[in-house]
Design a binder for these strands. Structure first.
Length: 255
DNA sequence: ATGACGTCTTGTAGACGA
């Protein structure tokens, strides 16, 4: 079974690259973030032509998440939103069952400046994620997406320069750790304990070509699924070429 | 190097992203 998570930074702008990814990898489960589309404009037809069915939670201009399954194993039991969310209209969490796995696609708020109201909202959102994961614990669970937190200094291109800034603070890391403590494993880290690898690079200043980025996109697996984990990697090819997202897709395979 | 990019909008400049 193949899993993909990708912050596409606009599904409209990225549709050709997404179709390219679906054709190349033929994943069984896809989690998308920052679809930036209204529900009425979600490209269900183009995805159907590619053999996929989407459960989307679409809010228009900002954010937006979706879970995709293949036409022969489409998402079922769709649930949009998260109990305890301060701003449910932001469309940052959607769940569905695909091929027997409960799947959640998540886009954690950016948080803007440390100490700002948006930062407090980010911490509260992470608390709500941890509570939901605890409620779902016990079954096969996949939570994947853009958590907007670099879990560790290994996940930051210049930890000294980032010290104290958003995405790396103790407050954010403790809350992400609490999500994992609720019953999930960071698939990339499990298989690559010492690797420095990134999933996001700023569009500006040639950051990608200098490989100066952050690892802020994750595939989190319940215990049972972790036992089936075969591989996990970042497909940097989708950060190159024509109209790339600023995030690269993260892929995993399970037995 | 002060900025550097890309996406969206009852748009054409400003907000947002991380």
């Amino acid at each position: 079974m193949k899993l993909v998570t990708w912050n596409v930074n606009s599904l409209k702008a990225r549709l050709p690259r997404l179709l390219e990814l679906l054709a190349e990898h033929r994943p069984d489960i896809v989690c998308l973030q920052e679809t930036k589309t209204g529900a009425e404009a979600f490209p269900h037809d183009a995805l159907a032509d590619a053999g996929y069915v989407a459960a989307d939670h679409s809010g228009g201009r900002w954010a937006g998440v979706a879970v995709l399954g293949r036409a022969e194993a489409p998402p079922t039991d769709v649930a949009a939103g998260l109990d305890g969310e301060a701003a449910p209209d932001e469309c940052r969490w959607v769940e569905a069952t695909v091929a027997g796995v409960r799947v959640a696609s998540v886009y954690v708020p950016n948080g803007r400046a440390v100490g700002s109201p948006a930062f407090a909202a980010k911490l509260a959102f992470l608390d709500a994620v941890a509570a939901r994961v605890a409620a779902l614990a016990g079954g096969p669970l996949l939570v994947a997406g853009d958590v907007n937190v670099a879990p560790d200094d290994r996940d930051v291109y210049d930890p000294a320069a980032f010290a104290g800034s958003t995405h790396v603070t103790r407050d954010e890391r403790e809350r992400l750790a609490a999500v994992l403590d609720a019953g999930l494993v960071d698939a990339y880290r499990r298989l690559h304990p010492d690797e420095v690898a990134f999933t996001w690079w700023d569009y500006r200043a040639g950051m990608f070509h200098k490989n100066l980025g952050l690892r802020i996109d994750v595939i989190l697996l319940s215990t049972e699924l972790t036992g089936r984990l075969e591989s996990c990697g970042i497909d940097r090819g989708y950060r190159k070429g024509s109209k790339p997202s600023d995030h690269a897709p993260l892929l995993a395979t399970l037995t």
